[in-house]
């Protein structure tokens, strides 16, 4: 099969982590956060980790939404930690959202990108990160104050500390192999999940 050429000066190690182990290891406490999960793997994983819990708004479309959608509750709920979790394909579509978040710099927002280097939902085509584009460098260049990259299991405890620290906008790049995400039978009704999220947080739909 014909393929794009890799970017020559990219020096990232080959991904070794399995997302089905790495994501729960990074986020063992998903109910501690208000979560916006981007399509498709990231939303599926956080829904699976919470058994389709009310604190997760999992997107099934609106590609590119997750990071700026996470900014909304971060600003509205300054005393809650908000996790915007996305994939490489979605984040590549909304790179500017990193700049928008960095300028606002909400101390309670955590951005995690599960980067498998592929468009997993559409036939596993190489994404730009799979060809060498480095989202951690883009996040740092956007002005996100704390950027951390996970290539191996050894880095997960440090990343977990950053994610759970009291304050500080951060971006964590979790580099994983190709492979399916954890899944649960989750509601794909965007209005139902909106009302469920608000009922749990605010006591009203």
């Amino acid at each position: 099969m014909a393929q794009h050429k890799r970017i020559q000066n990219s020096n990232q190690p080959t991904p070794v982590l399995d997302r089905q182990q790495a994501v729960p290891a990074l986020i063992p406490n998903p109910t501690d956060f208000l979560v916006v999960g981007g399509l498709a793997g990231a939303a599926q994983e956080l829904c699976a980790l919470t058994n389709d819990g009310p604190n997760v708004y999992g997107l099934g479309g609106a590609m590119g939404a997750a990071t700026t959608m996470g900014l909304g509750p971060a600003l509205a709920q300054p005393h809650r930690r908000v996790l915007a979790i996305t994939g490489d394909g979605e984040l590549l579509m909304s790179l500017g959202s990193l700049a928008t978040c960095a300028v606002l710099n909400p101390p309670n927002l955590r951005i995690v990108c599960v980067d498998n280097g592929h468009y997993g939902e559409t036939g596993n085509q190489d994404s730009h990160t799979g060809l060498g584009v480095q989202l951690d460098k883009i996040a740092a260049g956007s002005g996100i104050p704390t950027v951390f990259t996970i290539n191996t299991e050894a880095e997960i405890p440090e990343a977990r500390k950053i994610l759970n620290a009291e304050t500080g906008l951060c971006f964590i790049l979790l580099r994983v192999k190709e492979g399916s995400a954890l899944k649960v039978n989750r509601s794909l009704d965007p209005a139902f999940t909106r009302n469920r999220f608000r009922m749990a947080l605010l006591g009203r739909p």
Binding site: Y57, M69, G72, L75, A76, Q77, R194, L201
Partner: peptide, 11 residues
């Protein structure tokens, strides 16, 4: 997306 997120958070 931000406006939808604000609503999720009660803002």
């Amino acid at each position: 997306a931000l406006a939808a997120g604000a609503d999720l958070g009660g803002g």
